[in-house]
């Protein structure tokens, strides 16, 4: 059964190159797999209690790649993203089946420790969630608990570069001891980005990092993403198709828990192969 699906997804979709897949067909079209992947996800099902939120999703995340995930609200983008660093472990009713590997290691395997895993796979959440501590402590917390800084100067430097990368340094460099929760929504989001990159993760998961940002800050974060891509892999959820087009190499379109289409960003936006994808990007959805 499983092998059969694999076959349909992997190869047959290629043969359907010119023919748009109908709305009723929920199998993934496009190129979900890449050579030499950083992370591989195979046949992921996610349930919240009895409700299934993700159905049989298989996709790879390549090295030095930005994968953007788009789709209508409630389609399971956040849910899928949170599986990638086991954040869903914290939700009691959430159950995951399938296999997710980082560098060939099953991250849900018994011998895996989630603590270093989450330092390796950083996350920026959909809602900004700074700690009710000072701005400095917010960014310094990660390096501190992981022992990344040898001394105070080291730590100061990590904090400064992280804040600079997140494009927040100029605004707050004179009030590092003020509470992070006192910042504006957009500033809080950038603070969370700084906090995530302060532990130098290898894969970064970003859940709508720019939804509360102005165009300038957005541009800054997008520059950051392009910069980070040189070393890391990034998965970004976004509602802005322009943003997906600007920053990502590949785009995945989710629809009601199904991964409908994955492919080169340009190709997906200019020449979608699935009717649902076309509906969504042309604004005909809903």
């Amino acid at each position: 059964m499983m092998e059969q699906t694999e076959e349909i997804r992997g190869e047959k979709s290629e043969t359907r190159d010119w023919e748009v897949v109908s709305r009723e067909d929920r199998r993934t079209v496009g190129i979900p797999f890449v050579d030499n992947p950083r992370m591989t996800c195979r046949n992921i099902d996610v349930y919240y209690g009895d409700e299934q939120a993700i159905q049989d999703v298989s996709v790879d995340i390549g090295n030095n790649e930005v994968l953007s995930m788009i789709g209508p609200s409630g389609c399971g983008k956040s849910t899928f993203l949170r599986c990638l660093n086991r954040m869903n472990d914290t939700i009691d009713i959430c159950r995951i089946t399938g296999e997710i590997c980082l560098d060939g290691m099953d991250i849900y395997g018994g011998e895996i420790d989630v603590v270093p895993l989450r330092a390796q796979i950083g996350m920026v959440f959909q809602k900004p969630n700074p700690f009710p501590k000072s701005i400095y402590d917010n960014v310094a917390y990660g390096p501190k608990i992981h022992g990344l800084a040898a001394n105070k100067t080291d730590l100061d430097e990590i904090v400064e570069t992280s804040l600079k990368k997140a494009g927040l340094w100029k605004e707050i460099k004179d009030r590092m001891d003020q509470p992070g929760t006192g910042l504006s929504g957009g500033q809080q989001q950038r603070l969370c980005i700084a906090r995530a990159i302060a532990v130098s993760p290898e894969v970064i998961l970003m859940d709508e990092p720019c939804s509360a940002l102005d165009p300038i800050a957005t541009a800054h974060v997008e520059d950051l993403i392009s910069e980070l891509r040189k070393q890391y892999s990034i998965v970004i959820v976004t509602h802005s198709m322009q943003q997906a087009a600007r920053v990502s190499q590949r785009t995945a379109y989710f629809h009601l828990g199904d991964l409908i289409e994955v492919g080169e960003t340009e190709r997906v936006f200019t020449n979608p192969r699935h009717q649902l994808t076309e509906d969504y990007i042309t604004g005909r959805f809903g």
Partner: peptide, 27 residues
């Protein structure tokens, strides 16, 4: 204590104990 604070702590690799001691308990 809002779950977002717990997620924030766990999300950057705090252990459960660290999450509780550094963030949840003070709040």
């Amino acid at each position: 204590v809002p779950p977002s604070i717990r997620e924030a702590a766990l999300g950057i690799g705090a252990s459960r104990m660290q999450m509780v001691m550094h963030h949840v308990l003070p709040l």
